[in-house]
Design a protein around this nucleic acid. Sequence first.
DNA 1: TTGACAAACTTAATCGATTAAGTTAAAAAT
DNA 2: ATTTTTAACTTAATCGATTAAGTTTGTCAA
Lengths: 343, 343
Amino acid sequence: MKQSSEQARRVTLGDIAQRLGISTASVSMALRGNSGVSLATRQRVEEVAEELGYVYDRGAALLRTGQSNTVGIVVGTLSNSFFGELVSGVDEVIGEARKISFLLNTREDPDRQRELLTRMREQSVDGLIVCPAPGTSKNLLETVRNWGIPVIQMLRSISDTEGDFVSADYESGIETLCSHLVRLGHRRIAFLGGDLEHSATRQRLKGFRAALTRADLPADTIIKTANTSRGGREGAARLLAADDPPTAIVCFNDRVALGAMASIRAAGLVPGRDVAVTGFDNIDASSEAYPPLTTVETHGHDIGREAGNLLLRRIANPNMASERIIIPTRLIIRQSCGATLTD
Amino acid sequence: MKQSSEQARRVTLGDIAQRLGISTASVSMALRGNSGVSLATRQRVEEVAEELGYVYDRGAALLRTGQSNTVGIVVGTLSNSFFGELVSGVDEVIGEARKISFLLNTREDPDRQRELLTRMREQSVDGLIVCPAPGTSKNLLETVRNWGIPVIQMLRSISDTEGDFVSADYESGIETLCSHLVRLGHRRIAFLGGDLEHSATRQRLKGFRAALTRADLPADTIIKTANTSRGGREGAARLLAADDPPTAIVCFNDRVALGAMASIRAAGLVPGRDVAVTGFDNIDASSEAYPPLTTVETHGHDIGREAGNLLLRRIANPNMASERIIIPTRLIIRQSCGATLTD
DNA sequence: TTGACAAACTTAATCGATTAAGTTAAAAAT
DNA sequence: ATTTTTAACTTAATCGATTAAGTTTGTCAA
C-alpha cells in the first residue's frame, strides 16, 4: 500500500509479468480470476500487483472488450428531493452489479438531452435510465436502442405501449385521492400544477377527470403552473381569487401543495379547514408540514431500484420482451384535507 | 442521421480515412479542429463522418491521451434535497467544461468511500469533489492526491488547514443565529442533531458555544441525533421532557428543525410561540413550513458551482497554492423563533 | 534559379488489457 | 508403450484514437 511519491509511469500488467517472468496473458487471467492459471501463479501475481501498486486500467479494458461497466441516469431536475430518492435507489442496485453511474441533468431541455445521450454513446455506457424531458421526439429512444444501448424509461414514457418503463401508478393514485375528496363532500375540486407536457402529467389528469366525472362533477378547473412551491403559491392565489373558489385543491406533487398551503395562509385562511389541499409523492417535508399533508406515497427509492434491476435484466438479455412495471401507490390521509383542526 | 438497423461494426476514423483515401491522422486532426489540415479536407471529413454515422470513441482516446473528461462527485446522502442543490451546481460548471460526472454515494461509510475512490482511480477521472464521510482517515485525501488526482473537499474538511476546500461559513452562521436568539431573550438554548463527527458538525458547535459563552449562558445542552426529520422529532421530544426544557432549539439543519417542530406540536405546544426553533440550509420546505422556519441560507447551488470551478482550476494548474473558499451565509428570520403567531 | 520554409499531408508507434489460437509437458487412458 | 487428454502456460493480434517524426509539394525570398 506504499505510495511512491515520484510521478512514475503507470504500472501495467506487463510490469507484473516481467517481474515474474511470465506473460501478460497469464497475469490478466490471474487477476480476473479466470481458469487457466495455477493457484500458485495467481497468488504470486496478486502479491506482486500489490507490491508494485498496480491499478486496473478500465479505459484499456473498455477499448478491448467494449464493456464499460457504467450506466447513465438522465433526469430533468436534481433539486427536488424526490429525484434524490430515485437516484439513490438506482445507485444501490447498479452498485451491487459493480457498475457506476453517470448522472446527467437535462434541465428538462430536449436539445440538451439529445447532446447528453450522444455523449453517453461516446462513453459506451452499458445502459441508460431516462426520465424523458418534455418534448422528447417519439423516436429518440428508438434511435438510442438502435445504437445498441438498452434504455429504461423512468416515471415518464414516450409511448404508452412500447419500451421498458418503470413508474408509479399516477392515474389510479390520483383517482383514489379524488374519490376520497368527493366522499368528504367536496364538490368544487381544482387541479394545480403540471405545466410540463409529459406522460406523468397526462396520467394524473386522466385520474383526476375519471374520478370527478364518475361523481358527476365538473373536471375543468385546471391551473397549469410550474411543479414547484412557487408554482403552487401563485396558482393557489389565482384559484382563491376566483368568484367561486374551489373547496379542494389537488396538487401535482408535494412541492406544489406546500406552496399552495402557504398561499392559503397568506390569504388569511387555514389550509385543511377552509380549503383542502393534497400533494403527491410523500416527500419528507409533507409529514412535517402543518397541517400534515394528505398525499399519495410513490416510493421513489423502490422505483429507482426497480428501474435499476430492469436495466440489468435488459443488459443481460437484450431480446427479452419489454416490461412495463407500474408500482402501486398508497393514499396517505393526513390533516390537510378536512380533518378538524384545533388551531 | 439515418440509423442502419444492422448490428454493424463500429465506424472508426479508419473507415472515414479509407473512404476519402487519406490517413487516419488527417481525419483525427480534422475532427479535433487541429491545424495541419486544409479547410477542404476538413469539410469532406465532416461530411463523410456524418454520412457513415461516425461516433467518437472516448475509451480509445482515453487510453491514448490519459484524459477522460470525467469527474467524480462523492457524497454521503442523496435524499436530502440540499445535496441535489450542490450536485446541480457542480454539474453546471463541469458541464460547461465539457466534462461529465460520476455520482457516487458513500452512504457515510468510509470503507465504501475508499472502494469508490479506488474505482475512480481505475476510471482515470480528471478530478474529484468529495464530501468526506465521517471517520475518513487523515491521509486518504493525501493518498488520492499522490495518485495524481486533484481533489476538492466540499462542505467537510479532513484537515483544518490543508487542501482545497469549499464550504459555507457554518461557524459564523450559527453564531449569528444564536446571538439573534439571545437578543430575543432566550436563556436556555439547546443544540439538536449532528451525530456524525465531521468538520461541518464541529464548526456549528463551535459557533454555538462561542455565541452562548459570550452571553454568559451555558452551552451544554446538546442532543446528538441523526440529521433527519426523525432525529429532530425524537431529539425534541427528549428535550421537552426535561425538567427545565429549553426555550429555543438550534437544529443542525432544516430537516431536523422540521421534525422538531412536528414534535413540539405533538406535545401540544406551538412552535415559535412556546418554543423557538431554528434550522440551517434554507431548503425550499423551510419557507413553506408553518410557522415558516428561521434558518441560515447556505446557497448550496453556489457552493457546488464554486467547488466545480475550483476543481477546474486545480486540474488546469496542479501546482497552485491550495484554496479554501468559505461562502458567507445569511440569517433568514421567519416566524419559528418568536414572532407573535396569531393561530 | 536556388534554397528556405511552410502547409498539408503520411507513417508508424503507442496507450494497456484481452483473448483466440497455439505450445509444452505431464497425467491419464488404452 | 503409445495415444489421448488436460492443465498451464505463451504468442501475437486486436480494440480506435493520437501524435511525434517524417515526406511531399508548393510558395516566396534572395
